[in-house]
């Protein structure tokens, strides 16, 4: 469905120098540096997938989305989406995709949301019956009924984001690109937006590519992540695999009946300790957590034990460090 092969893109960036003299010089002649935003990026996405596209700021996420949505023309490489090359035949291609830029609105600010939808119907030349059924479905699944008649400027950010996503789905696209859909939202709205993305993926089979900095988005939605850093593809696979490869650390927290002896178990390190409570960190590649618990229970009278995997957030931080991005 989406096949990206060897995409490269570089930008010419004007060098900014300090000092008055340098600034005056820049008026006449500017030095440029070439920044390679994308280096030979390749991946394939199948219909119905939800793919999380992650990486630190400036990694090239937005550039990739812009290339895939036909806004930018890459310097090299090929891209085939639904049989189209996005940057050729722009008008024909974009009928099949929906794009949400989390930081920018596509709705008309001063008029009720429904008016924006009506205008989009004309922009996309959607036949009335088709429009009606999509519209009804979106209103129902997104619970937009109450807000559809308010002007956009009166909506909260969360409400607006739901409308934004609905607006980008009104023409029934097969692919949805979401660029930071949960940015700036509160916890409740984030969950609502995630839920919605999941629903349309399941019910309408829409393929979703989303970029985000919130790893909870990825955990809740994506069965697959693509990690990019400094323009190169670093990891492409499912979340479990990522965990196994990079997140072998686990923490074990145990409560027990008062015991003044310090705890020392081979293969673990103590993070915190009190006579009733201990937090241990283990590397599951070397020690099994069940062995640790067995040892613990032989030494102490255990009351409660919890095992936690390393949060995905930490894994990503570790990854960024590892790849020095």
């Amino acid at each position: 469905m989406i096949k990206v092969e060897g995409i490269t893109k570089s930008f010419k960036v004007a060098k900014r120098s300090t000092g008055l003299l340098q600034a005056a010089k820049a008026l006449v002649h500017r030095e440029h540096t070439i920044v390679e935003a994308l280096k030979e990026i390749s991946f394939t996405i199948e219909p119905g997938e939800i793919v999380g596209y992650i990486g630190p700021n400036g990694a090239g996420k937005s550039t990739t989305i812009k290339i895939m949505s036909g806004i930018l023309v890459p310097d090299g490489g090929t891209c085939n989406i639904l049989g189209y090359t996005p940057w050729k035949n722009r008008v024909e291609y974009v009928k099949n995709i929906g794009v949400v830029f989390g930081q920018r609105s596509q709705l008309w600010w001063d008029v009720p949301v429904i008016d924006s939808f009506e205008l989009l119907k004309d922009i996309y030349k959607i036949p009335q019956p088709e429009y009606k059924s999509t519209f009804d479905l979106l209103i129902e699944t997104l619970e937009l009924k109450e807000i559809i008649n308010s002007p956009v400027r009166q909506l909260s950010l969360g409400q607006r984001m739901r409308c934004e996503i609905a607006a980008s789905l009104i023409h029934n696209p097969q692919i949805l690109f979401l660029d930071e859909p949960t940015i700036g939202l509160d916890a409740v709205s984030k969950i609502a937006v995630r839920q919605f993305i999941k629903t349309i993926n399941q019910e309408k089979g829409v393929t979703v590519v989303l970029t985000t900095h919130d790893m909870n988005d990825i955990e809740a939605l994506a069965n697959r992540v693509i990690l990019i850093g400094k323009g190169s593809l670093l990891y492409d696979g499912n979340l479990e695999e990522l965990r196994k490869r990079f997140g072998s650390q686990k923490t074990i927290t145990a409560d027990y009946r008062k015991n003044p002896n310090p705890i020392d178990i081979a293969g673990t390190s103590v993070i915190s300790w009190s006579p009733e409570h201990v937090v241990l960190s283990i590397d599951t590649e070397q020690t099994l957590s069940s062995e640790v618990i067995t040892k613990l229970s032989s030494q102490l009278e255990l009351l409660d034990v919890t095992i936690e995997s390393q949060p995905i957030e930490d894994i990503i931080i570790q990854l960024y460090k590892e790849f020095q991005i």
Partner: peptide, 14 residues
Amino acid sequence: IKGDFDRVLVRPRS
């Protein structure tokens, strides 16, 4: 400046 021209480019009209 607002970057809204990108939006223009992802819509199927001239």
